[in-house]
Amino acid sequence: MEVVMAFVVGGLYAAAIYMMLRRSIVKLVIGLVLLSNAANLLIFTVAGMTSGAPPLIAPGDTVPEGVSADPLAQAVVLTAIVIGFGVLAFAVVLIHRAYEVVQADDMDQMKDTDR
């Protein structure tokens, strides 16, 4: 599965960067969403993907039975998802506000509005 995921994550990065290179600011936002998903999956994948062994401890035990998935990578990704949402929400509202003020969504036009 990791091998296929390597290609999928690579594809997500490519898609994200392609969208970020567009002039429309809405496409930039789409690129951001793709990029945060790509980065989360990257961390998740390189930590090793283990199926059917959540990092939970049964009552009475002190360690999980057998091999369990990497809890640290999961915690990191969980944090990253939430932060990513915060950034996205802020960016989207900022863009909307900028559009209201300068009446442009083409970043090349936005760049020159303060001249």
């Binding site: 995921m5 390597a6 690579g10 990065y13 960067i17 392609y18 290179l21 567009r22 790509a38 990257l42």
Partner: peptide
Amino acid sequence: RDAGIALVMGGMITLLILSTL
């Protein structure tokens, strides 16, 4: 041009993951 740049970066990430597995 942009698709080319994006694919290079995506390919780099793929290689990175594969080499760290």
